[in-house]
């Protein structure tokens, strides 16, 4: 009895300690966001929204991040499935390579991309021949976003596929499904939540990208670059409403997508 009480209170102390530590980090995330949103008056936000330059920058951000994500889905999901189903020498290396863009400074990633997609380099000159330029152009924004954000999608999709029991695929084969049909009727639907989660992450990460885009295509301006420009040229008062608007739009989209994802989970 006595020991039970002791254990209870020790358990409780630990829980309370963890809760307090957790509160610190939660406030650390919450306060700056809330302060920023509430310190900008709705009237100013509305004016900012009517500013054509702001709207086109935010629109460009959403659009380029979307294109990047679609490319990520088409090229990344097959790779994720391959990695989830096969083991081969060097697999660890490949998996580490995929995560490298997450760990390198993004400004360095931008420079690395410049050395491939710049007009005087390998891929850059090849694409230039068919009329696609990257530097100071929309395709440059897209590849910068793909580079830094596709690891989130690949990792998440891979984990999703790994959770699908291989024997479900085997049973599908005995029921007459070809490998391709098995992928689309069994593996993909069962991994779709992880893929969807990865897609949202990739898209969000794309929208928030700054460093790599700055090096490769600081023009046309995506929203983070516009915020930076206004901060540099006119000061904090002019950058703040744009930044706030960007944050609000991101939060709304993020919450909406999460809601869709969780509704799927309950069904």
């Amino acid at each position: 009895m006595m020991r039970n009480i002791l254990r209870w209170s020790a358990q409780r102390r630990l829980t309370i300690t963890f809760l307090l530590l957790g509160m610190v980090i939660l406030l650390f995330i919450f306060i700056p966001l809330a302060k920023m949103i509430f310190s900008t008056s709705p009237a100013i936000l509305w004016d900012t929204l009517l500013d054509g330059e702001v709207r086109s920058a935010i629109g460009l951000s959403l659009y380029t991040a979307l294109i990047a994500t679609v490319v990520g889905l088409v090229l990344g999901v097959p790779l994720a499935y391959f990695l989830a189903r096969h083991s081969f020498p060097g697999k660890r290396f490949v998996e580490a390579l995929i995560d490298v863009p997450i760990v390198v400074p993004h400004i360095a990633a931008g420079i690395a991309l410049l050395f491939v997609f710049g007009k005087n380099f390998l891929a850059g000159s090849a694409f230039h021949a068919i009329g696609i330029d990257f530097v100071f152009a929309v395709p440059g924004i897209v590849i910068a976003m793909i580079f830094v954000s596709v690891p989130f999608l690949i990792d998440s999709a891979k984990q999703g596929f790994e959770k699908v029991d291989v024997r479900l695929e085997k049973v599908a084969r005995t029921l007459g499904a070809s490998p391709r049909q098995t992928f689309f009727r069994v593996s993909l639907p069962l991994a779709k939540r992880s893929i969807f989660g990865g897609t949202v992450m990739m898209w969000a990460r794309g929208i928030s990208e700054f460093g790599a885009v700055l090096v490769l295509a600081s023009y046309p301006k995506i929203a983070p670059i516009l915020v930076y420009d206004r901060l540099e040229e006119y000061g904090l008062d002019y950058a703040l409403p744009v930044a706030t608007l960007l944050i609000i739009i991101c939060i709304v989209i993020f919450v909406a997508l999460r809601t869709i994802a969780y509704r799927g989970e309950r069904a």
């Binding site: 029991d165 024997r167 479900l168 085997k170 049973v171 599908a172 084969r173 005995t174 029921l175 007459g176 499904a177 070809s178 069994v186 069962l190």
Partner: peptide, 18 residues
């Protein structure tokens, strides 16, 4: 290929499509 063999398979723990 397994899909062309005409074989039915039941695993120990059923493995139904969830």
């Amino acid at each position: 290929e397994p899909e062309k063999r005409g074989i039915g398979f039941v695993y120990q723990d059923y493995v139904l499509f969830p």
